[in-house]
Design a protein around this nucleic acid. Structure first.
Lengths: 215, 215
DNA sequence: ATGCGTATACTCGTGAGCGAGTAATCAAAT
DNA sequence: ATTTGATTACTCGCTCACGAGTATACGCAT
């Protein structure tokens, strides 16, 4: 599934959703997005913003409505969403919502090459991560609670989701770290000797040959 | 933090980790990665693979050791990792492991524009997602259990992590869906009338003006 | 012996993504 | 009065990612 969108960048989604409210010029989009806390999850890349706006216009999803100049400032082109744009927006949301897609996280990548470090160092680094995760989580949770006082849930669900996932990551890291520090992680001794001497334990060597995930 | 890597693509990490085992040529890297189930999380893009290998060589992290031709096949260049490459690998893993970075997920993006759909449709789509998630989760869990019979935990942690996160997502979606179908989601009535009539409830209109996340 | 499908092993062109730079305006400070 | 620093508002050009295409060889059937 996941048909190719004319404009695939997720920033395009944000732009379309901003323009549904009212027409605006690119820089204003950025401000609005920032106000709505979208920049928390998605850093605003200036290059992308203007490229995306161009592409959206090229594909008729938005259109330049007017071009204002105030003072000696560079001219600002105001864009509005078209019917095609509105259609694309809802269709896109429908797809994103209904069909999960496995995305590659950097932490997953790190875990998949965990064996290049020694167990002790891995534990140390995981402890650092856990610390950072805990702090960040507390902050975000507080901010969410604060916002929930006057913003309806509907506009906070994405943050709730992120926090749910963050909590799961914290749990996982805490668990793994616990196993490493308590020494209950299975195969810890083999990993230890391998990292010290570079010697691959015999039962592992055989696995290397035939591949880890045989069908 | 997160200093710019000379080669930033995560496929480079996979390549380096493959070359730590033994020198090989690009196509073999792909095979090895596929055998180790890396293609599950990270689809192998041929263009990227060869670009990444080139870049790694350019920056001295790997080097061409020999160039074999067998039969009339195109010549295969065999690459080995350098000391600089080994250093980069461990340094990179250290960073990835210790410092969390918030990544933008497509589902988060979808949730942040949830209001463009009607509550009923949102519920319907979330139900579809939940279904897909459940199926995929069961499959992956079974595969993990199967693999765990002869592969050490050390090489399965990344899949355990993914499953932990997947479980959290399932829980979140199930919860949200429940609130929508049972009607207990706060502000559901407002959302409903807005989606039918396009009328923004007064207490919301005011929020729009001053921004959702004021500092 | 010849055709056909599949595995091997890349190459190349396109286009997307983005950081760093630019330049004007405005407010406050010296 | 003018220097400084922040805010507004973009532009440019490089790099990177990647899909689709290419071409050869091998095995198996006809």
């Amino acid at each position: 599934m996941a048909k190719r969108r004319k404009v695939g960048n997720l920033m395009a989604l944000a732009v379309l959703s901003a323009l549904v409210q009212q027409p605006m010029h690119p820089y204003q989009m950025a401000s609005v997005l920032r106000e709505h806390g979208k920049d928390q999850n998605m850093k605003i890349k200036w290059g992308s913003l203007y490229t995306v706006v161009q592409n959206l216009e090229k594909h008729g999803l938005i259109e330049a409505t007017e071009s204002v100049r105030q003072g000696g400032r560079p001219e600002r082109t105001v864009y509005g969403i078209t019917d095609a744009g509105r259609a694309e927006l809802t269709d896109w949301v429908r797809e994103l919502l209904s069909t999960p897609e496995q995305e590659q996280s950097r932490f997953t990548a790190a875990l998949s090459v965990l064996a290049v470090l020694s167990p002790a160092e891995a534990a140390d680094l995981l402890a650092q991560r856990l610390d950072a995760l805990d702090k960040r989580f507390a902050g975000r949770q507080a901010a969410l609670a604060e916002a929930a006082r006057d913003v309806p849930r509907l506009f906070l669900v994405e943050e709730e989701y992120e926090l749910a996932v963050a909590e799961a990551e914290i749990g996982f890291v805490r668990g793994l770290l616990g196993e490493l520090t308590s020494g209950t992680f299975p195969g810890l001794a083999d990993w230890q000797t391998f990292s010290e001497t570079g010697v691959v334990p015999p039962e592992l060597a055989e696995l290397m040959e035939r591949g880890l995930h045989p069908q």
